[in-house]
Amino acid sequence: MFGTMKRGANAYANIGVETGVLAASPHKLITMLFDGALVAIALGKKYMAEGNIKDKGESITKAILIVDNGLRASLNKEVGGELALNLDSLYEYMSRRLFEANATNNPAILDEVHSLLEDIRSAWEQIGPNGQPASMQAAPAPTAAFSQPSFAKA
């Protein structure tokens, strides 16, 4: 009559994510994109090992979309210069590798992309919101290589 417990829990989780996105700084939004891609890749690998083709494909596709439409689309190539261009190339490479992993059921490729994203996420966290090391932060401001994600723009 009122739906399943799982649907209610999913709705509650979605509200939490939406609230987090609305309240997040541009720096935090990028961190959330990294986290989402990392989780999607990990789930893709899990589903791949289980032989669950449908969920594997959905998870890897989600990771590709986050990399392409989130991380890559957030790059500000005019201001970010060579760093933004290099990240753009790396994100393009990751998307191709994720597609290949999905098509060939190769978990080693998922591990490779997961590791690359973890390294970039770690560096992103070290930079901090205003382009300085986190220990030297005074006030948050977006960094030059990234612009605010397009889904968060007013």
Rank of each mutant, 00 (worst) to 15 (best):
K62I: 02
A103C: 07
Y47Q: 13
D119A: 13
V21N: 10
M5F: 03
A144Q: 14
G44N: 10
E82C: 02
G128E: 14
M48S: 11
S122Y: 03
P140M: 10
Q137C: 00
I64H: 02
G128S: 11
D55K: 13
T31N: 07
L71C: 00
A145K: 03
I109Y: 04
N130C: 10
D35M: 08
D35N: 13
P26Y: 06
A108D: 15
A13P: 01
G20A: 15
A134P: 01
E18H: 03
A154R: 12
F99I: 09
G131V: 06
S59R: 10
M94W: 07
A154C: 03
N105S: 14
Q148A: 10
E125W: 00
M1A: 09
M32Y: 05
D35F: 03
A152E: 13
G36A: 11
G57A: 08
K56W: 03
N10Q: 14
A138H: 00
E125R: 12
M32T: 08
M48V: 10
P142G: 01
R96W: 03
N76Q: 08
N86L: 10
G81W: 00
V67F: 04
L29C: 08
S95R: 02
L83M: 13
A24M: 09
L43P: 00
S135N: 10
G57W: 01
F34H: 05
K54H: 06
A49I: 07
Q126A: 14
N69A: 07
A134V: 15
R96L: 13
K28P: 01
A108P: 02
I109A: 04
A63E: 04
E112G: 08
A40V: 09
A141P: 01
E112M: 06
V79P: 01
S115Y: 07
R7C: 03
I60Q: 13
